[in-house]
């Protein structure tokens, strides 16, 4: 009873400022004046929705993969260094957190532009003859989103790595495992909960990206969030609510799926030994 009372202010807050608006949005998806399933039914063969949804999912998948491949080694480095070096790595990781998405996107425009730093450097090095189109492509979206979302991958992995008893790596080494074998057979499997958390976080956050793809992405890179914003602006609120519901449902389904994955569920339990 008392725990419930303690949580009551937050629960009330969540109810009023989160649950009710979300519910209102869900209801809007069934029509603004009359009850109808038409909006949901039409999604299945709505080419704009399908293409946009696919764009959103594939971009999220690429960004997740990119952050994982780039972030894991950084998380390892973060955990295995001490003192000033570790502090510097942490600051570098967190720096994007403290910069507005808008400013970062402009920075990417300066870097990746037709006459930006990357192209100028490649031209100067004689590697290319004409500037590459990097900005205003899907690649630019993925690169910029990876940059923005890296901390969300690195921090949970670093946290999981930090929770691994350091004597386990020693034990592996003492039992004859080379550093690579020890990593592969002990550290990597034990960091799976962190990887799972990072993957989930980055993927779900990617689904909602809006400003970055709009600013640096290609002409056809419309994400679900962009479509929702567009439809809100076009006053098609029922359709927008319907799209929002799809986005919300996708995120929730992913979270549920991750908790049920056998390997990861197992790993989660193991950490609470």
């Amino acid at each position: 009873m008392i725990p419930l009372l303690l949580a009551a202010p937050l629960l009330l807050y969540m109810l009023v400022f989160y649950a009710l608006p979300v519910l209102a949005m869900l209801l809007k998806g069934f029509g603004e004046q009359h009850w109808t399933l038409a909006h949901y039914a039409s999604l299945a063969d709505d080419p704009v929705f399908l293409k946009t949804f696919w764009n959103t999912l594939s971009t999220a998948a690429l960004v997740t993969l990119g952050t994982l491949l780039l972030g894991y080694p950084v998380a390892l480095a973060l955990v295995r260094t001490r003192g000033v070096t570790a502090a510097i790595i942490l600051v570098v990781i967190l720096l994007p957190f403290w910069t507005s998405v808008l400013v970062r996107s402009y920075a990417w425009m300066v870097l990746m532009g037709r006459h930006g730093l990357i192209n100028e450097a490649l031209l100067a090095a004689g590697l290319i003859e004409r500037p590459l189109r990097i900005l205003n492509t899907s690649l630019a979206t993925v690169i910029a989103m990876i940059h923005i979302l890296l901390p969300y991958m690195i921090l949970p992995i670093a946290n999981a790595l930090r929770q691994i008893d350091p004597s386990l790596a020693r034990a592996a080494s003492g039992l004859g495992a080379s550093p690579f074998q020890a990593f592969r057979q002990v550290v990597l499997p034990l960091s799976v909960p962190g990887v799972a958390a990072g993957v989930l976080l980055v993927f779900v956050l990617s689904l909602g990206f809006y400003i970055t793809p709009a600013m640096v992405g290609g002409p056809r890179d419309i994400t679900l969030s962009m479509l929702i914003a567009q439809q809100v602006d076009q006053l098609n609120w029922a359709y927008a609510a319907c799209l929002s519901t799809v986005l919300l449902a996708t995120s929730l389904a992913l979270i549920a799926a991750f908790q049920r994955l056998p390997g990861i569920g197992n790993a989660f339990r193991m950490n609470t030994r």
Binding site: M109, G113, G116
Partner: peptide, 20 residues
Amino acid sequence: DIVKWWDTGAVPVQMLTDRE
């Protein structure tokens, strides 16, 4: 040939400035 379908007024001038 359209590299960007802009949606805010700052974008086209930015793109002209940057020679995009």
